[in-house]
Amino acid sequence: MTLLLFDLVLIATLLTLAVAALNSAEPRRAVMLFIAFGLWLALIWARLRAPDVALAEAAIGAGLGGALMLAAARRAARRREDDEAQR
């Protein structure tokens, strides 16, 4: 019973992070939430006894994917600030 509660908390947090990442209009915020989502997903996969995949998701999916997207988000945010300065 306690274990089921634990599972439910894990899943609820995962879905909340996904919704938050998908619904933030500010690019850097969205990418940060996406990284948090990826790390949480890795945690869940470790709980589902898939440690190989959890390691790969934490390192590749959340880590490198997040780093790639953060660089893009930084450019997007800067361009947006430039646009607002011009107005």
């Binding site: 440690p51 190989d52 390691l55 790969a56 390192a59 590749i60 880590g63 490198l64």
Partner: peptide, 10 residues
């Protein structure tokens, strides 16, 4: 657990 993909990612 480990392997080429995780090592390569690091």
């Amino acid at each position: 657990p480990g392997g080429a993909f995780q090592g390569g990612a690091l």
